[in-house]
Amino acid sequence: MFRGSVFTKLEHLLFSIFLVSVLFVPSRSSAQGAANQGNQESNFKASLLNIEAASNEVFRYQSTLRNASSETKTYELKADLPPGWLISFRVNGSQVRSVQMEAGKLQDIQIEVNASQSAEPKRYPIPVIAQSDNDTLTLNLEAVVKGSYALTLTTPTGRLSEEVVSGSSEEILLKVENKGTLPLNDISISSQLPSKWEATFEPSTIEQLEAGKSVDIKTTLKVPDKTIAGDYMAKITAKNANSQEEISFRILVKTSMLSGWIGILFILAAVAIVYLLIRKYGRR
Results as ranks from 00 to 15, higher is better:
36 N>G: 01
70 S>T: 14
54 A>W: 03
38 G>V: 06
59 F>I: 10
71 E>R: 11
40 Q>F: 12
47 S>G: 04
64 T>N: 08
35 A>P: 03
67 N>E: 13
45 K>M: 06
36 N>I: 13
72 T>Y: 05
56 N>T: 03
68 A>Y: 04
47 S>T: 13
45 K>I: 10
45 K>Q: 09
69 S>W: 05
49 L>S: 08
65 L>Q: 09
55 S>Y: 02
46 A>P: 07
67 N>H: 12
45 K>C: 00
38 G>Y: 10
63 S>E: 02
40 Q>N: 08
36 N>K: 13
50 N>D: 05
32 Q>R: 15
41 E>N: 11
65 L>S: 10
47 S>W: 01
39 N>F: 15
34 A>T: 07
32 Q>V: 06
44 F>D: 10
60 R>F: 00
69 S>Y: 07
52 E>N: 04
51 I>Q: 12
45 K>N: 07
37 Q>P: 01
55 S>K: 07
41 E>F: 06
65 L>F: 05
38 G>P: 00
36 N>R: 15
46 A>V: 02
41 E>I: 10
72 T>E: 14
70 S>H: 10
44 F>N: 08
56 N>F: 03
57 E>H: 03
45 K>W: 02
48 L>Q: 11
54 A>F: 03
50 N>S: 04
72 T>I: 11
32 Q>T: 10
52 E>L: 01
62 Q>K: 03
41 E>V: 08
62 Q>W: 00
37 Q>T: 07
39 N>L: 15
37 Q>I: 03
71 E>T: 14
49 L>D: 06
61 Y>H: 04
50 N>E: 06
67 N>I: 04
56 N>K: 03
34 A>E: 15
40 Q>Y: 08
68 A>E: 13
41 E>K: 15
53 A>D: 13
38 G>D: 13
50 N>Y: 03
53 A>L: 10
72 T>K: 15
56 N>Q: 05
35 A>V: 11
51 I>S: 08
61 Y>V: 01
44 F>S: 09
58 V>M: 12
57 E>T: 01
34 A>C: 09
33 G>Y: 11
63 S>A: 15
43 N>R: 12
64 T>R: 14
34 A>G: 09
55 S>V: 00
53 A>K: 12
40 Q>D: 09
65 L>G: 09
42 S>I: 07
37 Q>V: 08
67 N>F: 08
32 Q>D: 14
59 F>H: 10
54 A>H: 05
51 I>M: 05
58 V>N: 13
37 Q>D: 14
56 N>R: 02
70 S>P: 00
56 N>I: 01
70 S>E: 13
52 E>M: 06
63 S>Y: 04
48 L>P: 01
69 S>D: 13
51 I>R: 12
72 T>W: 06
67 N>M: 14
36 N>P: 01
66 R>H: 11
59 F>R: 07
44 F>W: 09
62 Q>N: 06
42 S>L: 11
50 N>K: 07
56 N>Y: 02
40 Q>W: 05
57 E>W: 02
61 Y>F: 15
54 A>Y: 07
71 E>N: 10
36 N>Y: 05
62 Q>L: 00
48 L>W: 00
53 A>P: 01
56 N>D: 13
51 I>N: 07
36 N>W: 05
41 E>A: 12
59 F>Y: 15
35 A>G: 05
45 K>T: 15
72 T>V: 14
49 L>C: 06
33 G>P: 00
54 A>I: 03
56 N>W: 02
34 A>N: 15
37 Q>F: 07
48 L>V: 01
